[in-house]
Design a protein around this nucleic acid. Structure first.
Length: 820
DNA sequence: ATATACACGGATCCCCTATTTCC
DNA sequence: GGAAATAGGGGATCCGTGTA
């Protein structure tokens, strides 16, 4: 049979000791397909230099005789091939060793510690990744496939009778197609339970939401006018109904929000407690929950997506939301707000109709979010060449590494291994590399500024200077030297070969595509071009972080420190050049320089920019970040020095760029944030601090008169580790403990909220005076004045030689006039 | 499990010394 | 009068959250 096929999810099974790949996807008619293919797992043995043929043959015969019994499985070396390959900048002779079963590769590798073999590699690349590399059947791309349809067949132990797809096909031939269009079948779900722990509470209801499908399944028989509410007898039937709908709809993606750690494990545990099966998989298998710091919930044949994870790793750096809750995230991306509903124990719920609505709404929001992010998810999968199950969960280092692994073939390169535990420890012991340079600003209000910044600075340095683990060399010949680096107190230079390395070349590919897709997006703005641009932007931006990451295959201390030495060098040189052309540099951080125009026209600034760019090597480039009417820099809280990473500028359209100020920090109360923001705006827009001071006085008056609303004084923060691990018992820890006493379960990243109240305790510690939102009490005027309002604005007014403290205390107010 | 370094600033912790309290 | 308790100052450290 012949058909078009788009692979979505990859898995494998063993049959008679060998590995077979299962690919789940759709054909052109939207039928669900499982493609079965044979896969021969292999490892690489890299030979020592200049081995005699006789020696190589000896090694080969030893390898070919390897046969072992592993966990009741007969495994042996099936065949070997000698290949000319590259490994970390060297041409090598290597033996490609095929073994019976993928799971035995590490054990085979143990038996390869033979004289003449220098290194063994490739045993730690995942089976799906290896398969995709080897066969070039990539996720989310269309193929024309042909092969036998298995129907009531005994092949592979009768697997087609277990797998509930429209067709199970044994792959014979395939070829790539150009088509791109694909609309996935998506089902979103959300549970409502009586407890956060499955041991302590039942599932009250579960909602499902897909295209033309909405459903709330519940055993709580309450009155409702909604047709989508379906009643079942009890929790057991609820689970069965859920399974039934999942099978009937048979989506490509089952999507939840935080469902890896909550919904799916909850379903599984409840089924276990009720002693029933939960056969969600396409082969009627139960979902598998892999425990770790981050749990992953997998369902065979259906890609389970936890949308929270994807959004967190991919977008949280660029998001405005102050938490990753469904409510906040939906607000940011959909403009929709979550229905308000106070979650409580079912025995205390009075309005069940609202609860049903709320439950469905969450699935609905998840569905809308998935639709919104679908172009990005699809593009990530295509670009990185890993299934959506992986790319929707993996962190940045894994994404980069996957991209690299899938591009090594183009360089005939054997993959490097993952570092072992001792190697990781060693890398961590070696300590951090020195980072970027930050220019210390002189506090003040400046007029008519320009800001330059380097485009993708670290990445363009790697590419332009050919820096990476494999280009590092001892030889000064045919290499370029790094700027001086301090290693254990001594100045040192590293050398990098002039011969292009695969790592910088792969990055160059990313860099160029990022440029192309960015231009494409600017020319033709749509969700696809945006997603493509985003994918390459993210890969490009995290490349240097990957090189310095202790868990990376291509980690290199020398490369990382050299990249950063170049970062410092280029920034300092640019600062100097801008100063030499008659400007006053105000500030610079890593890849940017802000300076005053000194009455020079914009055209002249652009000429300067061109001159700077002409002097840069390779793909390095400086951009004009913008012209600004005014900019404000302040001192640090303690002392006379100018504060770094803290400034506010206004451009000529009146838009503000505020960095680092309390305004943008979520761990300050909104009263302080809003006050500071307003004051910054008044100063920057008008260039006049007088109005700002009047405004401040009004706020202080209101505060003193207790006219400030509770929500404006709440201080938010989040818990980052188990509460008992805190060495310092800070207010936010106390708030967390108070919440815990109320029965709220704490995961890392739970946010807490509290305010400082007026109490009659003698203690001077703030933690003894905090109260949660619901707790009755009055706010401590003095605290909010001295610890929130004043600190947030004091340094701003200090620029204008106004002492806010004196004004607050009512002293010297009459003398104020002399400043104006 | 896990991209990097630099930076600010609040709050507590901890050590030291001076002062007060108690017998 | 002397020992123990307490207060307070100040630097170190912890901690969360920013910028790049």
């Amino acid at each position: 049979m012949e058909m078009k096929f788009i692979p979505i999810d990859f898995d494998y099974f063993d049959y008679e000791g060998k590995n077979y790949i299962e690919i789940f996807g759709r054909n052109e008619d939207g039928k669900k397909i499982c493609v079965i293919d044979f896969f021969e797992p292999y490892v690489w043995a890299i030979l020592e230099d200049n081995l005699k043929e006789k020696k190589i043959n000896e090694i080969l015969s030893r390898i070919n005789s390897i046969s072992l019994n592993s966990k009741g499985r007969e495994t042996k070396v099936e065949k070997t091939q000698i290949k000319e390959k590259n490994f970390l900048g060297k041409s090598v002779k290597a033996i490609k060793i095929y073994a019976t079963n993928y799971k035995d590769l590490p054990e085979i590798a143990e038996h390869l510690k033979i004289e003449g073999i220098e290194k063994i590699r490739g045993y730690d690349v995942g089976i799906t990744t290896s398969y995709i590399i080897e066969k070039k059947i990539e996720p989310m791309n269309w193929y024309k496939i042909s092969g036998d349809v298995l129907n009531e067949s005994d092949d592979f132990g009768g697997i087609d009778r277990i797998i509930e797809t429209d067709f199970v096909i044994k792959l014979e031939k395939f070829s790539s197609l150009k088509e791109e269009n694909f609309s996935p079948k998506v089902l979103c779900y959300d549970l409502e339970t009586d407890s956060l722990k499955p041991e302590n509470g039942e599932i009250l209801m579960v909602s499902l939401y897909g295209e033309n499908f909405k459903k709330v399944i519940t055993w709580k028989k309450k009155k409702t006018k909604h047709e989508y509410v379906e009643f079942v007898k009890d929790e057991k039937e609820l689970l069965e109904k859920f399974t039934e709908y999942l099978k009937k709809i048979s989506p490509d993606f089952l999507v939840g929000y935080n469902s890896d750690s909550f919904d799916l494990p909850f379903l599984k545990t409840r089924a276990k407690i009720l002693k029933i099966q939960l056969p969600l998989g396409i082969d009627s298998s139960e979902p598998s929950i892999s425990k770790g710091v981050f749990t992953r919930g997998k369902i065979n044949g259906i890609t389970h997506v936890d949308l929270l994870k994807f959004i967190k790793t991919t977008y949280s750096q660029y998001m405005q939301s102050e938490s990753m809750s469904l409510k906040e995230v939906s607000k940011e991306f959909l403009g929709d707000t979550k229905k308000d509903f106070e979650l409580r124990h079912s025995s205390k719920i009075s309005d069940w109709e609202k609860y049903f609505e709320y439950n469905l709404h969450d699935s609905n929001l998840t569905f809308q979010l998935f639709e919104k992010f679908w172009p990005d998810i699809l593009e990530f999968s295509r670009v990185i060449k890993e299934p959506i199950f992986e790319i929707s969960r993996n962190g940045l280092s894994k994404q980069i590494e996957s991209y690299i692994l899938h591009h090594l073939e183009e360089f005939n390169e054997i993959p490097e291994k993952k570092p072992g535990i001792s190697e990781i420890e060693e890398r961590r012991r070696k300590g951090n590399v020195e980072g970027a340079f930050v220019y210390e600003p002189k506090p003040g209000l400046y007029e008519d500024l320009a800001m330059f910044d380097f485009t993708s600075m670290h990445t363009s340095i790697i590419i332009s200077h050919n820096i990476s683990k494999e280009t590092l060399t001892d030889s000064k010949k045919n290499s370029t030297e790094s700027p001086e680096i301090l290693v254990g107190g001594k100045r040192k230079k590293f050398y990098f070969s002039k011969k292009r390395g695969f790592f910088p070349e792969i990055l160059k590919g990313i860099f160029e595509k990022r440029k192309i897709y960015k231009e494409e997006y600017q020319k033709n703005s749509n969700l696809i071009t945006k997603a493509r641009s985003n994918a390459f932007k993210l890969l490009s931006a995290s490349a240097h972080g990957y090189v310095g990451f202790f868990g990376a295959r291509y980690y290199s201390w020398e490369a990382s420190s050299t990249i950063l030495a170049f970062v410092r060098k280029y920034n300092l040189e640019t600062i100097k050049k801008i100063e030499n052309s008659g400007h006053k540099v105000i500030y610079g951080d890593t890849d940017s320089v802000a300076f005053t125009r000194e009455e020079k026209p914009k055209s002249e600034i652009k000429v300067l920019l061109k001159k700077l760019n002409d002097e840069l090597p390779g793909v390095m480039h400086i951009d004009l970040e913008g012209f600004f009417k005014r900019g404000l820099w302040v001192t640090t809280r303690s002392g006379e020095t100018g504060a770094k990473k803290k400034y506010a500028m206004i451009n000529e359209d009146g838009n503000l760029k505020i960095r680092g100020f309390e305004t943008v920090r979520r761990d300050w109360c909104s009263l302080a944030r809003i006050t500071q923001d307003h004051i910054l705006r008044l100063i920057l827009k008008e260039g006049n601090e007088k109005m700002a001071l009047e405004y401040l006085k009004e706020i202080i008056e209101k505060l003193k008169k207790r006219q400030i609303e509770k929500n404006e004084i709440m201080i938010k923060s989040s818990i980052k580790k188990p509460i008992e691990e805190y060495k310092s018992i800070t207010p936010h820890v106390v708030a967390a403990k108070k919440m815990q006493e109320k029965g709220i379960v704490f995961d890392p990243f739970t946010s807490v909220e509290y305010y400082v109240a007026k109490t009659n305790t003698k203690s001077k510690l703030i933690r003894d005076r905090i109260k949660l939102n619901g707790e009755p009490g009055e706010y401590d005027i003095n605290y909010y004045l001295q610890n929130q309002i004043i600190p947030s604005v004091e340094n701003i007014f200090q620029v204008f030689k106004i002492d806010v403290k004196e004004i607050v205390d009512g002293k010297k107010q009459e003398k104020l006039g002399k400043w104006f």
